[in-house]
Design a protein around this nucleic acid. Sequence first.
DNA 1: ATATACACGGATCCCCTATTTCC
DNA 2: GGAAATAGGGGATCCGTGTA
Length: 822
Amino acid sequence: MKTQFIPIDYSYFDFEGKNYALIYGRDPNNKKVCLIDSCPVYLWAILKDKTSKEKIEEIKKKIEKIEIDAKSRKTKVEKVEIENKNFLNREVKALKIYATNYKDLHDVADKIDFPEIEKRRGYDLGFTTHYILERRLEPLNWYEIEGEMLNNSDEFGGIDQIMNADFVIKMKSFKNLKENEFEPKVLAYDIETDDLKIGKGEILMISLVSKEFKKVITWKKIDTKKDYVEFVKDEKEMLEKFCKYVKEISPDVLVGYFSDGFDMPYIKERAEKFKIKLNLGIDNSQPKSSGGASSSSRIEGITHVDLLKFISTTYSQYMQSETLSLNEVAKEFLKDTKKEFKIQHSSKLKEHNWEEYYEYNLHDSELTLNLFEKFWPDMLEFSRIIKEPLFEISRNGLSKQMESYILHNLSRFNEIPEKRPMNNEISERIQRGGVKGAFVYEPKPGIYENIAMFDFTSMHTSIIISYNISKETLEEKGKNQFQSPEIEIDGKNKIFYFSRKPGFVPTILKEIFEKRKRFKEEYKKDPNIFTKARSNAFKLLSASAHGYIGFSGARYYSWEASSSILAYVRQFNIETIKKIEKLGHKVIYGDTDSVAFLINKDSKEDIKNLLKRLNEKLPGVMELELEGFFKRGIWVTTREGKSGAKKKYAMIKEDGEVKIRGFETVRRDWCKLAREVQDKIIRLILNEGNEKKALEYFKEVVEKLKKREIKKEDLIIRTQLTKPISEYKSISPHVVAAKKIKENEEPMAHGSLIEYYIAETNTKSKLIRDKVKLIDEKGEYNIEYYLKNQILPAVENIFNIFKIDLDYLIEGKKQMKLGDFK
DNA sequence: ATATACACGGATCCCCTATTTCC
DNA sequence: GGAAATAGGGGATCCGTGTA
């Protein structure tokens, strides 16, 4: 039979000792299809140079006899081929060793310990990655499949009979189709419980939402007119209903928000408690957790996506939201917020509260569904570009994404994949220590007018490409090589040398770099969610290239490469600063890849010409870009007041657009008042060019604070608890607040933002932590603290630019009477 | 285990010395 | 008068959060 097919999720099973890939997807009629396929399984043994033909034949014969009898199955070497391959850009002879079962490749590798074998590789990719590499049946692309339909067949032990798929097909062949469109069937879910500790409390209700389906299942009965609420007898029945609905709807994607860390493990634990089989899988299997600390839950045949994971690993650095709570993320991307509802223990809830609770529960699933749809184009593009399934794409960090992209492109270079570093190698890498980073120019504090800012486009990546820097291109000193700038190691200067023969990593990055440019243009011409997503995906890959090379867990980690890249980064930045100064412009600031300088009397055209001239001298794909012209900008001293503060500045464009970096205004661990006051003062000064209005405004605020006219909400301080309370060596205010929350037995998730304020207390203690109160705790806010430790520090450096000293304000309580401000 | 380094700055920790308190 | 307690200064360290 023939059909069209789009692969969504990949898995595999063993039958008679061999591996078979299971690929779940859809046909054009939206029928759920499960494909069964197989692929050759092998690893590589790289031979030492100059191994004689006879010797190779001899080893080959020995390897062909390897058999492994373990784990209730027999694996043997099926055949061995000799091939000319590349490994780390070097031509090698390698043995391709085919074996019965992928999981035994490691054991096979252990038996190939002949002295003529230099390295063994290619057995640690994971079966799914290996399969996709081998067969090129890539996720989320359309194919025409030819195969045999299994219907009540005995093949593979009757696998088609236990699969709840519309079709189970044993694949014979396939070909690519151009067809692009695909919309997955998505079901979102969310649970409400009485205790945040996994499995400890009861699950009160579960909501399920898809495009056509809306339901809240609960055993807490009250009179309600809400038709989406379905009552069941008890928690046990609710869990069974949940399974039943998921199976009936049979979605491609089951999506939750923090569901890897909360909803799914909770449901699992409760099901275990009630001895219910949570048979969500297409083969009636239960969800499987893996990954320890930040585990993930996999459901056979349905892609379980924890949207929080995708957003936090891939997008959080480009987002405005200060937390990744569903509420805030929904606000940013959907302009929608959670329903107002204060979660209480169910025993405290009144009858009418329950209605709101149902609504709240349903709404969370709706938000999750809508957010998924918002991010779907991005996940789809990522999956297609990186060629890994949605399940992996939605969970992997940037380094893993980068690595997968490289692995899926190696065959073009005839390259054997490098192995993952072992734990001891990772420790060695970490022990060797990090590399010296970029250069930051120390600004001279002050207010400046007419500023231009240049920055390098994708600086690290363009350096890697232009100088061919990578693990595989690193060489001993020779002729005609790229040389890194001098790098200081243990007091001595060292230079690293890189081949001119293009390495595969720089080549792959060059492609990414060019595609990034092309798709950015495409998006500009045709702005839609898909062109944006594609442009975004390449932007992210491009941006994480250097981080990958310097990451101790990377296959293609290289300390030397990373050091060299950064040495170039420093060199280019410093040289650019020098060149601009030589042309008569005063440089104000620069950080890593940027330079800000005074335009003087020059016109914008002059500056653009200057940029053009600088660009003519740059090598390879390196490019300097105009970040913008600014009417005015301010730089301040550090708190100590002796030097100019780096990574802290504010500038304004002609059109009034303000760019604020590093100031307390953009930091979430300062109270709202301090942030707003600072923001306003910065804007007033940037607009006016002097401090007059700002100072008046500031005095007003101080007056208000002293008269307690500021709302307590504006004084709440929010700090993240980043680890368990007991692990803190230093007991800071937010730790004290967290302890209080715990004592009150209020819900507090790991990593949550702790909110508190500093109150007036009788305590003699000078420690701030002894004045901490939770929001709901009665008390007056501590005026002295908010003056001395919040609003003054936020603005005094700014006023110092104008030689205005606010010091007399912080001398002490006595002097801070109302009359001090005139 | 889950991309890198640089940087600021609050708050506590910790050591030391001076001062105060207590007997 | 002398020992113990306390205060306060100041650098080191921890911690959170930014920029690039």
